[in-house]
């Protein structure tokens, strides 16, 4: 495959539930210091699914925006990857549901990947590799999560961070946002640091089991501060690049405090490390594509090189370089 037909990001779209969880309600419930949620967490509002709203609904809405905007037609899709940790059902995969609802042909390969905040990088890498291997012209990567379904409503540490949302990324052979080599990693020794214990085969759903999200914030902070810079540098080395060769470092939008701490530790100028989580919060696997979209998407970033870095539950991480044609 020559460079002109290499897999690349062609278009992006996102979708959120209608229901809003704003800061006023959180201040009232939990009594944070004034300004804490805006200045430290960096979030004004997060969107949460209603009781009858599921992840496939968000996924379909995000992908439909791409089709309605003319970026592609459903019948063009050769590959559909849905990245989620909150599937509609234990089985079948959410990708099967989304394929059918979007009217994507049955000849399309469709499957889920279960990854969290590194999921977008994993998804891009998988989709790009399958496009190359199988000669697919068009792929759709949908990241969609609804952590509100597993968050403990009384947990003042996690409730303000996460929001529900989805993003759809259209990949085309020859797409403008050309994918470079990725650096991916995993450290399951940290599995307990961010976990929903109940509902799987270890602890099937039984009344009284802990089926809510539990997070060790300190462990996650330490993990991010140590692993994200390594992941970035490993990815750059795989692409024979230096930090100076990258225009924008888009990190998983965990919280403003985490991003500013990372930015300071890596000695990166603020304008090279966007913080884009005020509206919507930490949407898990969707923060990276949502940030890309809010920065104007591939059309606004022409001629620039972007490094995407995701990290979180697993523990898991990944970085990938996207070079956008001028």
């Amino acid at each position: 495959m020559d460079t002109s037909s290499a897999p690349g990001i062609a278009a992006l779209a996102s979708a959120f539930p209608a229901q809003v969880l704003g800061n006023a309600e959180l201040y009232e419930r939990f009594g944070y210091d004034p300004g804490f949620l805006e200045r430290k967490i960096g979030i004004e509002r997060r969107y949460v699914c209603g009781p009858d709203e599921a992840v496939s609904d968000l996924a379909v809405r995000a992908a439909s925006k791409l089709f309605e905007g003319g970026a592609a037609r459903p019948e063009e899709i050769d590959l559909l990857v849905v990245c989620t940790q909150n599937p509609d059902y234990k089985l079948p995969t959410t990708a099967n549901l989304v394929q059918h609802r979007l009217g994507v042909p049955t000849t399309c390969a469709a499957f889920d990947i279960n990854q969290g905040c590194s999921g977008y990088v994993y998804g891009l890498s998988i989709a790009g590799a399958m496009m190359r291997a199988n000669g697919y012209a068009t792929a759709l990567l949908v990241t969609a999560d609804a952590y509100s379904k597993v968050i403990d409503a009384e947990d003042r540490d996690t409730l303000p961070l996460f929001g529900d949302g989805a993003a759809a990324t259209l990949l085309r052979a020859g797409g403008a946002g050309r994918l470079g080599a990725a650096s991916l990693g995993s450290d399951g020794s940290g599995a307990n640091e961010l976990i929903v214990r109940g509902g799987g085969s270890r602890h099937p759903a039984v009344e009284g089991r802990d089926d809510r999200l539990r997070m060790n914030g300190r462990a996650i902070f330490n993990f991010m501060m140590r692993q994200a810079p390594r992941s970035v540098d490993e990815c750059l080395a795989r692409n024979a690049l230096r930090r100076d060769d990258v225009d924008l470092f888009i990190f998983h939008q965990a919280s403003r405090y985490m991003l500013e701490s990372l930015r300071t530790a890596m000695k990166l100028d603020p304008e090279r490390v966007p913080i884009v989580l005020e509206d919507g919060g930490n949407t898990v696997s969707s923060t990276l594509p949502i940030a890309l979209e809010r920065l104007g998407g591939v059309s606004a970033l022409r001629g620039r090189r972007v490094l995407l870095c995701g990290f979180g539950v697993g523990l898991s991480w990944g970085s990938i370089v996207v070079t956008i044609a001028g």
Binding site: D33, F36, K40, G217, R218, F221, N222, M225, Y257, S261
Partner: peptide, 10 residues
């Protein structure tokens, strides 16, 4: 604050 303490210990 609580976030600063986490960062301080790190």
């Amino acid at each position: 604050d609580s976030l600063d303490v986490i960062n301080f210990l790190f």
